[in-house]
Computed example of a mutant assay.
Amino acid sequence: MNLHGLDFPEGLLYAPAHNLWLREEADGSVTLGLTAYGCALYGQIFAFTAKRPGTRIEAERSFGVVEFAKAAASARSPLAGELLEANDALLQRPGLINRDCYGEGWMVRLRPDDWPTQRSAFLQGEAAVAAFAERMRQDGFDPADNGVQALRTD
């Protein structure tokens, strides 16, 4: 799926308010990463520092810090659980988030609390794209501004 030149792959869950995607893993864990829209908003990412594995993460609380051009932002989790793993490759190559946000640029893996209940809070497919379109409208996002959209595909 594509919105204003930004990809939103099918098969993932999305948390538009957090600019994050979620992927269910076979072992019951959930991988989280920044969406293409999140990357477009941040611009070039210079560092990502995650909390330590084993840390309990509450919903709406930080699982790490993203540093970009002139600021840093707390990456807030849309779900509660235990942080199992951070993407160590991002320590040396944080730009992977910008280059491959849905692949090698993933951020953390969590073991969620009560996943069947939490899962219903996330969007897929056209519902996710519609929510991102509304978020872009509210943010005043200008799809014609090529200066902020490093991940455009058109």
Rank of each mutant, 00 (worst) to 15 (best):
M1G: 09
L3T: 10
H4S: 15
H4A: 15
D7N: 13
D7F: 05
D7M: 07
F8C: 00
F8R: 02
F8S: 04
P9C: 00
G11P: 04
G11H: 05
L12P: 06
Y14G: 05
Y14H: 03
Y14Q: 06
A15I: 06
P16I: 14
H18E: 15
H18Q: 15
N19Q: 14
L20H: 10
W21F: 08
W21A: 08
W21V: 09
R23C: 08
E24H: 07
E25T: 01
E25I: 03
S29D: 12
T31N: 04
T31W: 03
L32F: 13
L32G: 09
L32I: 10
L34G: 03
A36I: 00
G38S: 08
C39Q: 12
A40I: 01
A40F: 04
L41C: 15
Y42G: 08
I45K: 01
F46C: 06
A47L: 06
T49Y: 02
T49R: 06
A50C: 11
A50H: 07
K51V: 05
R56P: 05
I57Y: 10
F63H: 09
G64D: 05
G64I: 01
G64F: 09
G64Q: 07
V66C: 07
E67R: 03
A69G: 06
A69N: 09
A69P: 01
K70V: 01
A73G: 13
A75Q: 06
L79H: 07
A80E: 13
E82W: 06
E82I: 12
L83Q: 08
L84W: 03
L84C: 05
A86T: 09
A86P: 00
A89L: 11
R93G: 02
P94V: 02
G95M: 02
L96F: 00
I97P: 01
R99M: 03
Y102P: 01
G103M: 00
G103V: 04
G103A: 00
G103N: 03
E104P: 04
E104K: 03
G105C: 00
M107L: 15
R109Y: 11
R109S: 04
L110G: 13
L110V: 15
P112C: 05
D113K: 10
D114P: 05
P116S: 04
T117W: 00
T117A: 14
R119K: 13
A121C: 10
A121M: 08
F122D: 04
F122S: 01
G125F: 05
E126C: 05
A127S: 09
A128S: 03
F132A: 11
E134R: 15
R135D: 08
R135H: 10
M136Q: 13
R137Q: 14
G140L: 10
G140H: 12
D142C: 09
P143I: 14
D145W: 11
N146S: 11
Q149R: 15
Q149L: 12
A150H: 07
A150C: 08
L151R: 08
L151P: 02
L151D: 04
L151K: 04
T153H: 13
T153Y: 10
D154L: 12
